[in-house]
Amino acid sequence: MPVLKGKELRIVGFLCNWCSYGGADTAGVGRFNQPTDLRIIRVPCSGRIDPLFIMKTLMNGADGVLVSGCHPRDCHYAEGNFYARRRLEVLHRFLPILGFEPGRFEYTWVSASEGQRWQQVVTRFTEQIHKLGPAPKIAGPEASATLRQMEAVL
């Protein structure tokens, strides 16, 4: 569905199954109210998240991308979030070079017991994205050529 005009922006989340997805579940079970913009994609581990997923999401028109995994040293797969941390930190610094506002992407750590923390993370990130407003869209007659070019760079 298109985003609700004037109400919502398109925010995509990539969450690891064991900690953060569970944390989002815990927030739901605890009825911790949250903004409705975020759509969550479940992956087994934050280490599964290819930075290209985030790039493609932003290029396809998302206004914000949030990644969340297990706290460092508490990874279900022992070290997946360490890989994630390195990759995502590099990506974060790389975003302005590609012409994306770095504030549109964030990564964080939320454990399965931290429902309330998840509520705070979502609320704060959603507010941050609303402050930035809708992301500039790649549009116009050159749009598809530009997108192809960007894909080639990636």
């Binding site: 989002a24 079970v29 009825r31 949250q34 409705t36 509520q119």
Partner: peptide
């Protein structure tokens, strides 16, 4: 449920979000 109906009461936004999740 955990990611939609239990975390907000706005029926329009929730229905929209639920539809998105089903589409995904």
């Amino acid at each position: 449920r955990e990611h939609v109906s239990w975390i907000g009461k706005d029926r329009e936004a929730n229905t929209n979000k639920a539809t998105d999740l089903v589409r995904m």
